[in-house]
Design a protein around this nucleic acid. Sequence first.
DNA 1: GGCGGCATGTAAATGGTTACATGATTAC
DNA 2: GTAATCATGTAACCATTTACATGCCGCC
Lengths: 169, 169
Amino acid sequence: MERGGAQLTDLEGATLAEIATRGAATSYAIAQAFAGSPSEYWSGSAGAVYPLIKRLAARGLLEASAAAAGRRERLDYRITGAGRAALEGWLLDAQRAAGMGFDPLRTRLMHLHLVPPERRTAFLDEVRALSRDFAARPAFVGNPVAMKVHQSWTTARAKWLAMLDFLAG
Amino acid sequence: MERGGAQLTDLEGATLAEIATRGAATSYAIAQAFAGSPSEYWSGSAGAVYPLIKRLAARGLLEASAAAAGRRERLDYRITGAGRAALEGWLLDAQRAAGMGFDPLRTRLMHLHLVPPERRTAFLDEVRALSRDFAARPAFVGNPVAMKVHQSWTTARAKWLAMLDFLAG
DNA sequence: GGCGGCATGTAAATGGTTACATGATTAC
DNA sequence: GTAATCATGTAACCATTTACATGCCGCC
């Protein structure tokens, strides 16, 4: 135990969730999943994912099984009982879920008074246009639930963007 | 130059913005400002803020002036011309502003299928209740623009939460 | 004149990014 | 059979957190 009981980070939680959904997965597959996400938050770089999954295995939350392909070692990971418990603790943590997270737009809006009104208006217009493009791009194809979550989020965001005219003046 | 031209991180940008707004500020004041934010994203810990501001000064984006109080050194920082240019580059970066950022709720919703419907419903109800409490807490008092940004954001979020019933089934 | 809290840091541990190295597989 | 790409890592660097150390100030 010891570290096994520590609270999961969001990256750890998301990783366990991905593996749980797949049943079994290699580190590479998980890295790909993150890299393919429309969010810029996590890169899915090998240097992050491989060590992360190793740590989760060392804590007993994942178990590795050799998925022998060639002569090179190749590991499939599955979630353990302890892993599933930790995952649920992370997933259903309403307190953390209700937090504000980080929003690159919100952060900037707080300081938009530092530039003159014309530039504020131009900025908002540009963000609105980019957000429309972004919303139009397909994401999470083949995963209906994730698609709906993503879509509802972009819709909510567009509505927020539409109510920000008080910043333009 | 050299590093002075590098793109600012969001933390660096927000720090420059805080100092620009105040005219002059100590590292401590900036740390307090971040620590007092309703967002859990950045802690405003001394170990992060003091070195960060030192780096910005070393890059020529801030300048320090001794604000002698007692015998102990005490520095006020102001933004420089280069600092203001870098700040505007960060602040008006629509591409980055249009990104999704990190949302602890959105991340969890993507994986909510891993638990049975009753628990999903209970989770959503709990998050809604916590979000209501959160929205009711005063934030950014004395800063009308930030208050309105914050308020519009919590409003938009509440509307999003209200449209998530497709997850409960 | 000592105590509590404000203010200014620093050090060790942690974890992520970037860049690199290299083995295996596929397309041609 | 060889170039491109897929796959599996590792190492150096960098930033943040946590925990600690210490100075200074105001009050009682």
